[in-house]
């Protein structure tokens, strides 16, 4: 191991940990994006199950998780429930994103929405 190795590894770990530990505000609502575009919005305070074409997700006790996906991988089914602002569950094969937004989220996708999708 050389000096540059240690610098790279320590810097990467420090940046990663810093980003992980940044305080996140609690989520207010769930925004559903399909193909990068706004599809629907749900308050986290009300429990419900939503059925979509290829997926189904559930809101329970302020947490959101995917409960059905017709894709072969099923990565989104293995994803942990999300509840804090900025967290998201992504189903890549179906191009579906469940994103938690906080109180004053100025929706970055209003600017970047639809890029390359």
């Amino acid at each position: 191991m050389k000096k540059a190795d240690f610098i790279l590894v320590l810097c990467a770990l420090a940046v990663g940990l810093l980003l992980l530990l940044l305080p996140k505000s609690s989520g207010e609502r769930l925004t559903v994006l399909c193909d990068g575009e706004f599809f629907a919005e749900y308050p986290l305070s009300r429990d419900c199950v939503v059925e979509l074409a290829g997926n189904a997700f559930e809101i329970r006790d302020g947490e959101v998780f995917m409960c059905r996906a017709d894709c072969p991988g099923g990565d989104c089914l293995k994803s942990r429930p999300v509840s804090r602002a900025g967290e998201s569950i992504v189903c890549l094969p179906n191009r579906l994103i469940l994103r938690i937004d906080g109180k004053d989220n100025d929706a970055p996708d209003a600017v970047t929405g639809g890029v390359g999708g």
């Binding site: 590894v9 990467a12 770990l13 940046v15 990663g16 940990l17 980003l19 992980l20 994006l33 193909d35 990068g36 575009e37 900025g86 967290e87 998201s88 992504v90 890549l92 191009r95 994103i97 994103r99 970055p108 996708d109 970047t112 929405g113 639809g114 890029v115 390359g116 999708g117």
Partner: peptide, 24 residues
């Protein structure tokens, strides 16, 4: 790549965890 496919930067929520796991 996922940003291009989904057309949203929401996938970058995974960035910190992926940075640490990729390094280790």
């Amino acid at each position: 790549c996922a940003t291009l496919v989904t057309g949203s930067t929401a996938v970058f929520a995974y960035f910190p965890a992926l940075l640490i796991s990729g390094t280790l």
